[in-house]
Design a protein around this nucleic acid. Structure first.
Lengths: 210, 210
DNA sequence: GTCTATAAATAGATAGAC
DNA sequence: GTCTATCTATTTATAGAC
């Protein structure tokens, strides 16, 4: 009788055994990285927020950087998967654009800390990204590019740079500014934002050239 | 005979006497903050890039934070001034939107490090901003708000949230991604970007509701 | 105004007991 | 898996000579 308990996927068994502290750390870290960026984030603060001993960070993850990379990998992979599905769906290009926007919005909603982190990585030129994550991002942009190309081939869209469309989508799809005295900042609902972005993206693609 | 040389504006005389090192520090710091953010920035690196002794940072500025605030203040003030001018100009609302976009683009061009810094501050919720700078930003959003309101009153624009329009403008108006394997990233010129953003902004405001 | 040397504080990381 | 104590490196900031 060969023992089987050690033969299981190490990743899976680890998750089973320590889902709590590991999970707490991941979500506390996401919040910290979102609020302060990679360099500004503090492992003590992460541990405290997760109500977990700081040493656990180095038990579950190799380093602060590895923890950050893991969060990024997870976030961008999730978006890439959903976005690719939207691009492959048999639907009209315009509908795919709507699905693309909604895919990002949905993932951003499920992970409230995703947009700020994304923003920072853009500002930083992707300094902290590993190859897997770069591949995910390339996949996201690529999926959008395919949708745009398809619409253009069908004579529905005009030629616009995918990166600019992408920026026009990601820009507004961040969390509303909560402070700073900007009036009306927190009065925009999720659905309003999504509807606005979808409308603008489609106008940019289908509207007159003028 | 009262001596006059000490009576001059201390700020002015300081600038006159040390324009070189002070100026070098400011521009080196802007680059560093843009590339790495406030927390990620390193004063040694700033001093080295400016070819100035590190102690000079604390001679000219109170601290790393004060240096950062000074850069932000300058950048946002310049944008606020130009943007307010655009809003006051006697022109049709649509033209004012174009001027608004161009104003930001022009300042961003004059200060290449402005867009990434702006991006970070947005992600951070304005954590490092002093009151003066918050006022500038409020002024920028306010100027856009007035333009939109005017266009709406004239029956030309539809009702859209100024913050979303603003995000749609600032989002694409960042520096083009230079790396990361994104195809076509660096193929977008300044004028193409500005034209795209202007077009999209106006479509969002004037286009059909559908 | 400029420089060297160094103080002082932070913060990432690890050893080792339990 | 979890904790305490601590090491170490980095980095902001200052004192003081020139």
């Amino acid at each position: 009788m060969v023992k089987k308990k050690k033969a299981a996927n190490p990743r899976r068994s680890q998750v089973e055994r320590s889902a709590t502290s590991r999970q707490r750390l991941l979500s506390a870290a996401a919040a910290e990285f979102a609020a302060r960026g990679f360099a500004g984030a503090n492992v003590d603060r992460i541990a405290r927020a997760a109500r977990v001993n700081k040493a656990m960070i180095y038990y579950h993850f190799k380093s602060k950087a590895a923890l950050y990379r893991e969060i990024l990998r997870d976030m961008f992979e999730a978006v890439a998967v959903r976005v690719s599905a939207a691009a492959q769906d048999p639907a009209a290009p315009a509908e795919k654009v709507r699905a693309f926007v909604d895919a990002i919005a949905t993932e951003a909603e499920a992970r409230p800390h995703f947009p700020p982190i994304w923003f920072r990585e853009i500002a930083e030129g992707g300094a902290h990204l590993d190859e897997t994550t770069v591949a995910s991002i390339t996949g996201i942009i690529g999926a959008l590019g395919r949708i745009l190309h398809e619409g253009r081939a069908a004579g529905r869209f005009q030629a616009v740079n995918p990166l600019l469309v992408h920026a026009g989508i990601v820009g507004p799809l961040r969390r509303r500014l909560e402070r700073g005295g900007v009036p009306g900042a927190s009065m925009v609902s999720r659905d309003q934002v999504v509807a606005h972005v979808q409308r603008v993206a489609l106008l940019a693609l289908e509207g007159p050239t003028a």
